[in-house]
Simulated assay, not measured.
Amino acid sequence: MSTATGTITVEFCGEEFVAVKGTPLTIGRTGDVEIDDNPFLHRNFLQVVEEGGLWWLTNVGTTLTATVADKKGLFQAWLNPGARIPLALERFTVWFTAGPTTYDFDILVDSPAFTSTGSEDVETDSSGETTVGRVTFTPDQKLLMVALCEGLLRRSYAAPGQIPSSADAAARLGWKVTKFNRKLDNVCQKLADAGTRGLHGGPGKLASNRKARLVEHALSTRLVTEGDLALLDAIDADDTTGEAHR
């Protein structure tokens, strides 16, 4: 029987945790990697385990989901309860949201089975519209995603982040909440039409859950990056200029 080769390391908040063959590396409120004393977080949420000659990341929770992506934004998986993915690339980032808080950590694979190549197809035309793959976003739609991700983009290292309420994000952009919600619906529908899961509205789909899923998707696919914070800084500069002239 073949056996998994290489070492799997989980990096969280500056600490490293190495997976050992034959013993699951547990991640959650308690376990080998203690994320946070958050009552919304499962005691045992994710596991890194060797099976059948491969290392796997498995969601052993009952309600929470996780978004898993490579560092280049070329691969993304949505890990539902009971689902698992093989850790076959050299580096992954895992995002998940428990209650009001979003977390992320990295998984390093020292001898990956595959190597990702190429780059994400992101273009911005003269009108300011941003195209990623088959989806095109208007400047306002891009601003909305940056505002939702701002708290996580401005961190100096991997640590818990807060996703703003719709009211706070709207105020950050100088919009009415009705405008924000309308544009949020449009962004989620565009991505859902392109095949992104977890963004549909309807019964049982709370606004906070959709926003969390949107933030995880935008960060994992590099729809927004730290460089996009300049868009919000420009709003701050305009507000300051406006105050100076009043």
Rank of each mutant, 00 (worst) to 15 (best):
F45A: 04
L143W: 06
R155L: 15
S111E: 14
V215D: 07
T93R: 15
M145Q: 14
T131P: 03
H42G: 03
L54G: 00
G61E: 07
N181T: 07
P39C: 04
R29P: 01
D239V: 14
F92T: 02
E16L: 08
G198C: 05
D106H: 15
K205R: 14
A212S: 13
L148H: 04
A237T: 13
P24C: 04
S119N: 06
D236N: 11
D36A: 15
G6E: 06
P203F: 10
W175I: 02
L89S: 02
T97K: 10
C149N: 06
E216I: 10
L191P: 07
K21M: 05
E120T: 15
T102S: 15
A212H: 11
G242D: 04
V135I: 14
I8F: 03
F96W: 11
I163K: 01
G73V: 10
E129G: 08
T101Q: 08
Y103E: 05
R154F: 00
V48F: 01
C13W: 10
A69C: 14
R213A: 15
K179N: 03
T241D: 11
V48L: 01
F92L: 13
A159Y: 05
G195D: 11
K190E: 05
A192R: 01
S127H: 12
T9H: 01
L148S: 03
V177D: 10
T221Y: 02
E90L: 02
K71I: 14
S119M: 08
R172M: 04
L57T: 07
G52V: 05
T117D: 07
T58F: 02
E34D: 04
G202F: 13
D37A: 15
S2Y: 08
D121L: 10
D140R: 14
L206R: 10
W56M: 00
N181V: 10
L232P: 02
A218Y: 11
D236M: 02
T62M: 01
K179Q: 14
V132P: 00
T101K: 09
V60A: 00
T65M: 12
E50Y: 03
V224S: 07
K179R: 15
W56C: 00
T138Y: 07
